[in-house]
Design a protein around this nucleic acid. Sequence first.
DNA 1: TATATTTGCGGGTACGTACCCGAACTCATT
DNA 2: AATGAGTTCGGGTACGTACCCGCAAATATA
Lengths: 352, 352
Amino acid sequence: MEKDNTYFGVKEIARRANVSIATVDRVIHNRTGVSEKTKRKINEIIKELDYQPNILASRLASRKIISLAVLLPKVSPETDFWEAPLKGIDRAQQEIKKYGVQVSTFLFDLNDHKSFSEQTKLILEGTFHGVLLAPSFVDESREFAKACNKLKIPFTFIDSDIPDQENLAYIGPHLFQSGYVGAKLLTYRLKEKHKVLVVNISKETDTYNYLQIEEGFRSYFKDNSLPGEIIRVDIKDTDNLSVTRDLKRILHTNEDIEAIFVTNSRVSAVASFLEKNKRGDISLIGYDFLKENVRYLNEGLIDFLICHKPEEQGYRGLMALYQTLVLGSAVEKVHFMPIDIITRENQAFYQN
Amino acid sequence: MEKDNTYFGVKEIARRANVSIATVDRVIHNRTGVSEKTKRKINEIIKELDYQPNILASRLASRKIISLAVLLPKVSPETDFWEAPLKGIDRAQQEIKKYGVQVSTFLFDLNDHKSFSEQTKLILEGTFHGVLLAPSFVDESREFAKACNKLKIPFTFIDSDIPDQENLAYIGPHLFQSGYVGAKLLTYRLKEKHKVLVVNISKETDTYNYLQIEEGFRSYFKDNSLPGEIIRVDIKDTDNLSVTRDLKRILHTNEDIEAIFVTNSRVSAVASFLEKNKRGDISLIGYDFLKENVRYLNEGLIDFLICHKPEEQGYRGLMALYQTLVLGSAVEKVHFMPIDIITRENQAFYQN
DNA sequence: TATATTTGCGGGTACGTACCCGAACTCATT
DNA sequence: AATGAGTTCGGGTACGTACCCGCAAATATA
């Protein structure tokens, strides 16, 4: 049971071109020192043989390491959402470190634009071959993208996208459609006329995401010409006390609210409120497979969670860089994550 | 930016043990020709250094190929469900062929027990290092499992499990829970009292799967003490004509059926019937992300599809064999797939 | 005791690629 | 014609592991 020898490597190319392996190697890595003529000839043979470099041998022989930077929000005390991408990144790292890939992680504070800029500065000062980031702050991210492009450092977005930044890839949700799915689930069993509440709990930071989700949410109502009313509330102070206060006020003035849609992972704060105020009758939908959220899902206070595989986003994001930088193969420019629907019944087998 | 040299390989082990690399190699592959004393010493050093072999170098140096067998049902004219696992297997194959892994595919007819046995015989006659199979026929699979165990050939089940066969892994759905989810979705917007129909369309072959799903389905009703009636029907002739005939009969005698649950991918046959008979009012849930099914989902005739990532089952199944045979690392004995819920709204981004 | 066999081990080459170290060759300038 | 700089290229070694070949010592057989 021997390996088949139908394989063509640099040796064969060299033989056919009547040059040495070293010359072929120069052409492959388009280094200098090869005449145009020889280069053309070798490139022809490469194409003819459909030469695929042996990554094993390549990485084995290379003494270089490839270092990647990761820029993500810190895990905040209020939500551990960002643990998941980190976990995925770690998994990818474990998988590819044997090929000489090194990963450095940089964290910024979602409540502090400056911390983001500081970290990007650090990254630009280091010598990284690629960057994976969550572009939570649009302006700052644009600036960073420009700098990376100038330095020819490829970078990948996860979690949310900023169009036209010449990024290598975007791996994350289609936010509009995600809101659309939320609306479908929320209204699936509602009566004809209904009153729903959209809650956005965040310190104004990632309003970018939020807007797209709400747009999708409202579009579902429009597309299906559903009557009824959509109320929205922004809760800027993300501590439980503020959430409670604001919700109490809203529900007081709108007693007939049947369902609540929370636009991010902070849905557990709303669930907690509903539980304390004995309003389990209200349907509740929100985002992300966090422990707290799953607990309320199992208690029946949350009806559905929507999730975009944050762990896989991290994993795929890093692997996209690996693919271009190490394997030299192309990656999809945009890869939308599935819009996963999680209920009490299927949560046990969910893969984040 | 050089690779760090904190790495310890066979060379270092050999140096510390005052033996040659070849001797270390013998111990690592527990080949003969090493005295007990030397072996013990080397093993100690290996443990001490936590030696991790370099797979790159290992596979590069090895002239051996590893050949795997895959045994799956043929794609039938009535459902192309089995295309998906094959696709996943192909993807895995592409990924690992560079490490000297070869895959041979064997197909059997889901309507013919004998064809299964024939193919297993062929596999046993070949010299394969591992097998991936869908154990659609329980008795025949048990027998095959026994033979594999005797030959010490590891094998992995996908799609459905048979307990206690000393298989390397099972990668597939938790069927009971999947039926449970189906019931949840089916009843989510139904009135208090309801009448639902469970339809099983199959030629008696994979009743094993079916029974577990139905058990889960019924359990949901019991656990939530839902009143109402569950009717079931078996349709043994899987052509559209027979399906139409049987459904017509049932719906005639049970005019007040509100929802139908189809236990496998043949749900499109039911959707087609409902469409022709203008019974779009009936909720319909079934299995699998097939083109036909998605079409009816988009037309609104199917409310939900449940799906267990068949492509990923194939992919992971093959990778499990790769992991044990090539990397020599352990794999989970049982890996349940998520129970994915697909609607018209999120289908566009589903990853099969 | 002489000879054959087994056991234990080291030397060395190969896997396919990367890359260093020069060698040879071209061409312009003295 | 000699010198030098630049260009183009080949030889050779290394990456970490697998495994063949063959040698010496230990043991068995005569």
